[in-house]
Design a binder for these strands. Structure first.
Length: 342
DNA sequence: ATACATGATTTTGA
DNA sequence: TCAAAATCATGTAT
């Protein structure tokens, strides 16, 4: 980017027709053919030399060339040659369709509320989603202000960078277009050629933009996983909830697999979701099985509790004899001893 | 600071 | 597709 002139000479020599003000090429050529070869060689030499000179030197030489009597003739020859070569080159680099990857990134950024209209829509939606996902409202709102702040930060960086790129792009485009216009006085450059040049520049810049978008997406994803991953905001269930769950577990120790309906009821009683109930039972089963000894005390506690409950209920009902602990089969029955050993 | 407890997710196996 | 098992990431007690 530090030497636009070189890039220009490399890219613009490819295509385009002569300019409209060239006039009839044949007529001019006849004139040209009448001149000594020496002249044309000389002019060409000078034109080639322009690219190697400093801008000031080139400026002076360009002016000299413009005033040269052979200039119109040479110009027309260049036009003609160019027209011929361009036929074989045309179609080599036609329009490519909008990059699907950049579209994907755009959509993602839009969905995350990074790009698009000012804060509101995106973050509000995210907040709603987080709230729906569970967790107490206060927690999620506290964590969410943090999340939103970070997101806003990313958003701000993204926009300022994007703006910078856009500005640089348009500046560079302008610069190049001016140069091309300037050069079009000494060599034929069609509007179409300029157009193509601009397109090339834009492609280059958009590939830079894509990198920006990509890294922004990455940052947002990391942020999301940092804040929205349920594991990271785990809260223990309250005592009453665990009590209810444990009660069910130990009173169904022979088959601690609550049905869907039972789960729903437990969920309602505990103020948690059905899948949380499922998680709890899954964890409880495996951990109980893994170390029955460790849970012995707890098991006894709940056995006694349910026994007492049942006793009081049945006592109320009919003064019946005390019910046995409902423990039979399934998991290895914990063998109760008064001191808690197996 | 550390180890252990616990809810959630991921992997694995039937 | 469900549950077990393994694992993760945090909460909590010491």
């Amino acid at each position: 980017m530090d030497d636009p002139t070189r890039m220009l000479s490399g890219l613009t020599g490819l295509s385009g027709l002569g300019q409209a003000d060239v006039g009839d090429p044949d007529a001019v050529r006849k004139q040209a053919l009448g001149q000594p070869q020496q002249d044309i060689g000389d002019i060409l030499q000078q034109i080639m030399a322009i690219t190697d000179e400093s801008l000031d030197e080139a400026q002076a030489r360009k002016h000299a060339l413009n005033c040269h009597r052979m200039k119109p003739a040479l110009f027309s020859v260049l036009c003609e040659i160019k027209e011929k070569t361009v036929l074989s080159i045309r179609g080599v680099q036609e329009e490519d369709p909008p990059d699907p990857q950049i579209m994907r990134l755009d959509n993602m950024l839009l969905a995350e509320g990074v790009s698009g209209p000012e804060k509101g829509g995106g973050s509000a939606a995210a907040a709603a989603a987080a709230a729906a996902a569970g967790g107490s409202p206060t927690d999620s709102s506290i964590e969410h202000s943090d999340y939103r702040a970070k997101l806003a930060q990313i958003r701000q960086i993204y926009h300022s960078e994007l703006e910078k790129y856009e500005q640089a792009c348009s500046e560079f485009t302008n610069h190049v277009m001016n140069l091309l216009r300037e050069q079009s006085r000494t060599r034929p450059i069609s509007p179409k050629e300029i157009e193509r040049m601009v397109a090339i520049i834009h492609r280059k810049f958009s590939s830079i933009q894509m990198q920006l978008k990509q890294s922004t997406c990455e940052a947002v994803m990391i942020l999301r996983s940092r804040f929205l991953d349920a594991r990271r905001k785990r809260r223990n269930f309250n005592k009453q909830a665990t009590e209810v769950l444990n009660e069910y577990f130990y009173s169904h120790l022979s088959n601690p697999y609550p049905s869907e309906e039972a789960k729903e009821e437990l969920a309602k009683k505990c103020g948690i979701t059905v899948s949380q109930v499922s998680n709890w039972f899954g964890n409880k089963r495996i951990r109980y099985k893994k170390n029955i000894g460790k849970f012995q005390e707890e098991a006894n506690l709940y056995a006694v509790k349910t026994a007492v409950d049942a006793a009081s209920v049945s006592a109320q009902a009919s003064q019946a004899n005390s019910p046995a602990t409902p423990n039979s089969g399934g998991y290895p029955a914990p063998c109760y001893t008064p001191d808690g050993r197996l």
